[in-house]
Each structure stands twice: as C-alpha cells, then as structure tokens.
Design a binder for these strands. Structure first.
Length: 464
RNA sequence: UCCUCAGUAGCUCAACGGCAGAGCGACCGGCUGUUAACCGGUAGGUUGCAGGUUCGAAUCCUGCCUGGGGAGCCA
C-alpha cells in the first residue's frame, strides 16, 4: 500500500481517486456518531488536514478509534474518495486505523482558540496549531527565498564566525564565551581576570554582527551575504527583541548608498511576492485571524516605490507635524520610536528609508559625507514593525576611518585586519542588516518576535 | 531597567467587601454525513506567592513572582 503525504494528496487528489492509500498524522479533531465518525488528520506537510471517515461495520475497533483524543497519532489505511459536493474536496474511507501514539485527555492543545501567550508556554506543542504551522512554514520558505534571491544575483554566501573577539563595535551587550572557571578564574597581578589563559587566549564572545567579516569577503567576491544567528545580551523586554535572532547581511563592493537601498528594496519586494505566491493558505490565515488588511497592504507595497528621505528632511517633517511627541524633535538627536512610527505609519503609510544621519549617533564604520556632519547611513522603517533594516556605505578611506575610531574610543589595533582592507585595494562598498524575524513579523502580521522563533531566547527565558 | 495593565476551573473570562460562576475544553450518554459539529448530563478551585487591614478579602493595602502593552537599546 502506498504511503502518501497529505501535501501530495491535496495537490493531486484526482489522481488518487479510488486508490488504496495509507496516511499518517496527528488528530486535530475526532467527531464520532453512532455508527461512523470523522477524523481531521494533519501530518504537517500541508497547512490543511485531510478528513478520514470511519464506519462501525468497517472497523472492528470502532469504539476505540471513536475515543481517540486530539493530538493522538494514527496511520489510516483506506480508499480516497472525491467529495466535490462537500466542504472538503476529498476524504479517505478507512478500513483500518492503527494507533501510533495516543494522546491523553490532558493534552493542552484543544480544538478551540488559544491565546498566543498560553501557546508560548507549550512551545514544544504549538507547532501543531494552525497559526504556528503557518508561521513556521513561512519562516522555512522565507529562508529559502532569501538564499534564492541572492544566489540568483550571483552573491556568495558567507558563513561569518559565530564566536569572535570583536567587541569594539558597539552593537550591543555581548554574551561572553569562555572556558574559565567562573568561581575561580585565573587572575593577573592586578587581580583582573587573565583572559590570556582562556580558550582563545583573549576575551571572546558570540557575534553581534557578521558585517566586518562580510566586508572582507565583499572585497574579494564583490557581492556576498551572510545569513546566520546573532546574539545580543541586551536587557530588552519588548515584542521586537530577542537574545538570539537571525540576520541577513549583504555587502557589495563598488556600491554606494543608493545601490544599497535599491538592493534592500528589491529584496523586501522579492520576499513579499514570494510569500503571496508560495504560501497562499498561510497568508489567508494571517489575513483573516492575525492582521486584517495584511494582504492588501503587502500588495500595495509591491506596486509603490519606497520613500527615501534624509534625516534632515525627516526632522523637518516631524517639526511640522501636528502630533505632540513625548520626546522633542531636534537635529542631532536620534529618532525615537514615536517619530519613526509617525513617519512610516502616519506621514507616508509605507516603507521609508531615512538616510544621512548625524555622525555622532551612528557607528564608526559608516562613511562620512562631504558635509562633515552626517554619514551615509540608511534605516528602513516599515509600518507596524519599525526599523527592519539598518545599513550604510562603509568608510573606505583609511585616514577617515582611523579618525572616527579614535572619536568613538575604539582601538585600531583590535581591528588591524579591518583597517588592512582599506590599505590593500580598498574600494567603496556598502551593505545592510535585515532582521530575519522582523521580516517575518512584517510579512505575517504576527506582532511578537517570540511567536516567529521556534524556541525563543529572551531575557530570563531559556526554556525548551 | 523604567512606566502601565493584568494574574480566579485545562483555556478565555465574570463576580469588585458578604454562599466562587459562565462559555469553551475534558468525561459520560444521544444523534445515519460531521467540518473548531450538534443536543443532554457529570466532574473540575489553596482566586499567582507571602504578609497586612477587616466581624468577614478573589475584591482593599504592602512586598515579591509571572505575563501583556508601552519606553529605552536595536535588527
């Protein structure tokens, strides 16, 4: 007997009509009547379940099957029958149902609406629910789409190191990586910890960004990208931050800030059309139960050009706004979340690139503009999520870079190799970081980052 | 870390100083085509924890814990 995946059954139901098949999966609902019953069976290969019909005179163990609870695993053998009149296009008339694994009555996931907060507490079971089935299938397909986008354009995929000794970047608090005994670390004469005795012979940490390494590869392969885990030990308690998340960081040589924005816009639009075309059932679910208007909004964005304004223009818009902001708007201060929301959600109602920020509020590696006051930075703000991309044209001029490092109290000797890249065939180049989870949130409407990561790691939470 | 709201049955919530309840789920029964089925019934509680006020506390007060929303930091 042919073992069939639910995905194949649904896609090619007609070709299975009248055939004897075997499907396995987990029971979503089991509705029994006097002499027959219906099992809604999902095997995870497709968003939709299949309906298995069982009858008393076909099954010797009818009563046992009728009692099977939600979450039980079974294998059903039977004949595929097309049911064009009914709500489902076909069903399986079972003549045997093998119980693979029972699920007792305290199974937490019931055929009813659960809150995402509750489901977070059972993260090991939540992928069996409609919402999380959809979220994690989209997450998987989006990973594929990201690789496809870059590979189609000839980018080289670079595995940036996960453990590094770069702590000079200021991108956030670091997770220390050490093999020293925390209760009794080796100390130097001045009683400070002697990291030369540590595994790497120096302080090391989990990466907060693969950008610096990506720059090295961009100056060899011209177009590269990283896509991997990133770690920040920030004490952030928001729906948009996690201690472990994934980031996509393209880096392109001979590219300026405009090229960089073009690439970012192309990537985001590619991902939008990808999910709209490839994950129809999932997007319908998000549109219906998570964020009404999601599909409309995404389709509008596909047609529209993203807005591009400078930081100085953004300040002017905010100063003229008839909204009262909690934080004052003034040139030189970083944009607050309320300002970003105003720009992307009220003023333009679509994605907005903000460029050319004051150098004081941006990282040392961003290229100084000719005005001497701003740097060639760009942030992409999107409605509902906020900052989804941060990038810049990099400072390729060695003397400017060194000056900026000194200004920001970064020791050049720690990043000798990064400076070398300017010395030997250094060229203009640019890149950005796209928060993968933030992209998923934006594309699905799911508003908490904990609900788009299989087993999220956040402050005070490392369960599962 | 700060501000704010909340925590009562497995889940979602009501009761807001005077007998702790409903819907859903679970369980039992009924139903010859169900679709998060329907109909009838049963069970289910240290009201987050610790202390205080009161004749009496789920309800008021204090502290702590957990969760949501917002802020900072950022992707």
């Amino acid at each position: 007997m042919e073992k069939v995946l639910v995905k194949d059954l649904i896609r090619e139901a007609a070709s299975y009509a009248g055939k004897e098949i075997e499907v396995s999966g987990w029971i979503r609902t089991n509705r029994d009547q006097k002499s027959f019953g219906f099992i809604s069976l999902n095997d995870g290969t497709h968003f939709n379940p299949v309906q298995v019909v069982y009858e008393k005179d076909q099954l010797s163990d009818f009563e046992q099957v009728a009692r099977l609870g939600v979450g039980s695993a079974i294998t059903a053998q039977g004949v595929v029958e097309l049911t064009p009149e009914a709500k489902q296009p076909f069903e399986i008339k079972a003549h045997a149902i093998v119980v693979e694994g029972e699920s007792p009555e305290d199974y937490p996931i019931q055929p009813k609406r659960h809150s995402v907060e509750f489901l977070r507490e059972v993260a090991h079971l939540r992928p069996r629910t409609n919402l999380f089935t959809a979220v994690f299938r989209v997450r998987s397909l989006l990973s594929y789409a990201i690789h496809r986008f870059f590979q189609e354009r000839g980018f080289i995929y670079l595995h940036a190191p996960i453990i590094t000794a770069n702590d000079a970047e200021g991108a956030g608090e670091l997770f220390r990586v050490t093999t020293l005994d925390p209760a009794n670390p080796p100390v130097k004469e001045d009683k400070t910890i002697d990291y030369s005795a540590d595994f790497f012979g120096k302080k090391s940490n989990l990466t907060v960004s693969g950008q610096l390494e990506a720059e090295a590869f961009a100056l060899a392969f011209r177009q590269v990208y990283t896509f991997g885990p990133t770690f920040r030990a920030e004490n952030s308690n928001t729906a948009r931050h996690a201690a472990e998340f994934w980031m996509i960081e393209p880096e392109v040589a001979f590219a300026d800030l405009g090229d960089n924005m073009n690439l970012a816009e192309d990537l985001l639009k590619y991902l939008i059309s990808f999910v709209l075309e490839q994950t129809v059932e999932e997007m319908n679910l998000f549109n219906q139960f998570v964020d009404q208007g999601l599909k409309d909004r995404l389709e509008q964005i596909l047609k529209a050009e993203f807005v591009r304004i400078t930081y100085s223009e953004a300040i002017e818009i905010l100063l003229k706004a008839d909204t009262r902001f909690e934080y004052p708007v003034q040139w030189g201060s970083d944009l607050q979340t309320e300002h970003e929301r105003y720009l992307t959600e009220k003023s333009f109602k679509k994605p907005v690139f903000v460029t050319d920020y004051p150098k004081e509020i941006k990282a040392f590696y961003m290229r100084l503009n000719d005005d001497g006051k701003t740097v060639a930075a760009m942030d992409l703000l999107v409605p509902g999520v906020g900052e989804i991309i941060g990038g810049s044209q990099r400072e390729e001029r060695e003397e400017f870079l060194l000056k900026r490092m000194v200004e920001q109290n970064i020791h050049p000797e720690d990043l000798w190799w990064y400076i070398d890249l300017r010395k030997y065939g250094g060229v203009k180049h640019a890149g950005f970081g796209l928060g993968f989870e933030r992209a998923i949130m934006y594309l699905t409407g799911v508003s908490n980052i904990r609900d788009v990561i299989p087993f999220p790691r956040t402050v005070k939470d490392c369960e599962f």
